[in-house]
Design a protein around this nucleic acid. Structure first.
Lengths: 292, 292
DNA sequence: CGCTTACATTACATTTATTCATGGATAGCC
DNA sequence: GGCTATCCATGAATAAATGTAATGTAAGCG
């Protein structure tokens, strides 16, 4: 099998100009190298060097091999350096899973200082999971889950990092815009806009509409935050949103923010990790910086 | 040292899904592989697989290694296939050196059928040599030399492949255009155009002007065949050329071709190779097809 | 011509890889 | 829940590879 060591031999002999010098550089005896190159040639079935007097000169096959060596060896050397970074915990990959649509905006703010602080950690964000966020975490499809729904399961650990209130966003000219808070009945004749997730994962249903037995006039879904808020702004519907996110759009789109229920819907964002990853310092650092 | 075999192990375990299956595929015992991976991890100083129950799962470092394996292993496998071609004499590199400027046109015609007949031989044409064409051949800088000057030296072999007459190209309206042949004196007042090579390698000097003690009014050089013949066509000078090459331009540029001396300058193109390469079938084939 | 340098070869030593035999752990199955 | 098949780990024994020392042979150089 054509091996890394063979490529190294070809490169070193060419670099040093002689087998003896190459042997010195490789910390081997001249004899050992002589054995090695003979075996390589026997194995490949073709001459790699021409013995001309006391010179070794590459054959065409040898020149090809040299080219290969010059191409592949640096890649292997780079890979080793990188693996040393892994070994020292400097290098890693943080695959983040999102189970919370609007959190994307928040995540961006957390990721960007993290990227500066940990230049050798690659960050990857995923949003679709075959078996849900928890499944993705357990299956090692992701390393960190951003979710409003912690799920206490052996081997996983969740930490709250962010409290917020879920409010309803309305056009400023909407008839309900002036209210201090809304009751479920107020939404009976409204068009409700949400991200396209199942109803049992929408707090406005589970904590507000469903308990009161109310169904809105129409429920539409929309993938994009911007588009959804544009629709709200133009009076085409109302949408539940985290207050902090809605506020960033409020001025620009002329929106009104109204509490859902007398005491409001209060939520938390959790970061979930595998217990076995607790020791990873860059993961720890990410969670700490997310908590601010 | 991170070795090819390690990459193969990483790839195979991932492909087969288990260490036992991978061992089967690699024709090893499960134990051997277990030892191997442990040693690899010890050496790298970082875990590559997580042992979860009876499953092996890649760590981030392991995933990196897998990526490396998927990138490098195919290259090594391709290289081995190619080296087998070298071993069977199917694959080679033919580096051709040219010591004869106008022959370039002729060479193109020989090379193109050769490339079709020997799809696995790479052809490379060089024109500049530190120690001349013969030196380049001896130094293995090239494998084949196209030259009008054979040089009998031990270890080299020259074969004539092509006879031609060197004539003088003139504008059709030139005062000498009608002559059947020219004497050296006729060039005393002419501008002589040649390729930029030393005078002792120009036959028009060595075989024509110098013996008669004549020097042309002006000697200009030009790299390109096309430009040189354009200059001739516009009456800016006269140029020595192989007849066969001048003929291909004659009509288009309205040129006249006149013999140099009563019996003309007759030349041959030789192909030179190293004797040690005589057995290479693709080299043999090239020379045979060049002889037509 | 003889000295130095360079690669090859032989016989032997050492290191490394592999196997064999065995044990512990886990997932699936009655 | 206990049985069983499967999977990975381990330690000692063994096979294979890689390496060394010593020596040989040939080429360049003064």
């Amino acid at each position: 099998m054509l091996d890394r060591s063979h490529l190294l031999v070809v490169r070193t002999i060419e670099q040093q100009g002689s087998l003896t010098a190459a042997a010195r550089q490789l910390c081997l005896t001249q004899s050992a190298l002589s054995h090695t190159i003979r075996k390589l040639e026997t194995h490949l079935g073709t001459a790699i060097w021409l013995r001309e007097g006391r010179q070794l000169r590459l054959t065409p096959a040898g020149r090809y091999l040299l080219g290969l060596a010059n191409r592949l060896l640096p890649q292997l050397e780079y890979a080793e350096a990188r693996l040393r970074q892994f070994a020292r915990g400097e290098r890693g990959t943080l695959r983040i899973g999102m189970e919370c649509h609007p959190c994307y905006q928040w995540l961006i703010n957390v990721i960007s200082p993290f990227l500066s602080a940990w230049p050798d950690v690659d960050v990857d964000v995923k949003q679709k999971f075959l078996f849900g966020g928890i499944g993705a975490l357990l299956e090692h499809e992701i390393d960190l889950l951003v979710t409003p729904d912690p799920f206490n399961k052996a081997g996983l650990k969740f930490e709250p990092v962010f409290d917020f209130e879920q409010i309803l966003v309305l056009s400023a000219s909407h008839r309900l815009a002036g209210q201090f808070y809304l009751n479920a009945e107020d939404l009976r004749d409204e068009v409700l806009l949400t991200y396209p997730v199942s109803v049992d994962r929408l707090d406005i249903y589970t904590q507000f509409l469903t308990p009161a037995g109310i169904v809105p006039r129409l429920h539409k879904t929309c993938e994009s935050t911007d588009v959804m808020l544009q629709l709200v702004s133009s009076g085409r519907g109302v949408a539940p949103f985290p207050a902090w996110l809605a506020e960033t759009y409020q001025e620009r789109l002329n929106l009104a923010l109204v509490r859902l229920g007398q005491s409001g819907i209060h939520k938390q964002i959790f970061l979930g990790i595998r217990e076995s990853d607790q020791a990873l310092d860059y993961l720890r650092a990410f969670i700490d910086s997310a908590r601010e």
